[in-house]
Design a protein around this nucleic acid. Structure first.
Lengths: 110, 110
DNA sequence: TATTTATATTGCAATATTACGATATACTGA
DNA sequence: TCAGTATATCGTAATATTGCAATATAAATA
C-alpha cells in the first residue's frame, strides 16, 4: 500500500527509520559529503555541485533539514547550510549499538 | 519522477544510499533490533515478532539481505537470519567520516 | 522602485515502496 | 506418499518518492 504502519512501531524505531531514509538517496549523500569536503557552511553553491535541477535540490535539502541532519541559516540573500549534530547523534547511537553487538556476538550460526 | 538518477552519482554514493534506505523503515529497524536482542540467529520467529503479515515480513527480510545487512542460511525446514557485517561496515565507514568531521569542524556559521 | 539573484513552493507525471491475500515451493515427519 | 510447517513469490491496490517546469517569495543592489 505504500503506507508504512507507523503506529505499530515504537517512536524510537520510527525516528531512526526517518533518519536513515533521509540519508538513503545518493543526492542527499552527495550533499552531506560536500558539506564535509568544503569544511564550512555552504551558501548557494550546492545546486551547482549536483546534477539535478534547482527545485529538486531544494526538496532534498528540505528533507535533510526535516530529519535533523542539516540546518540552515539566512545569510543575507542566500542560505547557509551545514551539518546538524542532532540527527547524526541519534543514528550514531543506533549504529554503535549494532557495531558493539557485531564485535562481541556469540551463537553465530550463519 | 520517482526514479533516482543513479547514473549521475558515484558508485560509493549509490551504495551508501541503498544501505541507508534499507535501514530506513521501522519494520526493518525492528528486525535488526530483534536480531541483536536475542543474540543469535533467528529461525522463524521473526514473523511473530512483527505486526505485519508474513509476506510483508518476507519482503523486508529480502531487502535487508539484498543490501547486505543480514544473511540467511537454511536450517532444515526453517531459515536462520543474522546480521551481516559486510553492510554495516560500509555504513560505519561513512558515519565515522561524518562524526570525525563534526567533532573537529571549524568555520561553523549556522 | 525595478532588476537581479537565491531559494522555496506548486503541480504534475513517472516510478518506487508498502502491504497483503492467494498461491507456490520446499523441507519434515507420520 | 501425504499432511503440516516455514518461507518465498505473484499480483495488485494504495500511497510515497523523485524530478522538473513554472512560478512565487524575498533579499540585495542599481
Amino acid at each position: 500500500m505504500g503506507i508504512t504502519k507507523t503506529e505499530h512501531f515504537t517512536e524510537d524505531q520510527n525516528e531512526l527509520a526517518i533518519l536513515a531514509k533521509a540519508i538513503g538517496h545518493p543526492a542527499r549523500i552527495a550533499i552531506i559529503q560536500h558539506l564535509i569536503k568544503v569544511n564550512s557552511c555552504v551558501c548557494g553553491d550546492i545546486v551547482n555541485e549536483l546534477p539535478l535541477a534547482q527545485p529538486t535540490v531544494s526538496q532534498h535539502l528540505k528533507e535533510l533539514k526535516n530529519a535533523g541532519l542539516i540546518k540552515g541559516s539566512f545569510e543575507g540573500n542566500a542560505i547557509c547550510y551545514c551539518l546538524d549534530e542532532v540527527g547524526f547523534n541519534k543514528i550514531r547511537g543506533f549504529l554503535q549499538h549494532v557495531d558493539t553487538y557485531l564485535e562481541n556476538r556469540k551463537n553465530q550460526c550463519c
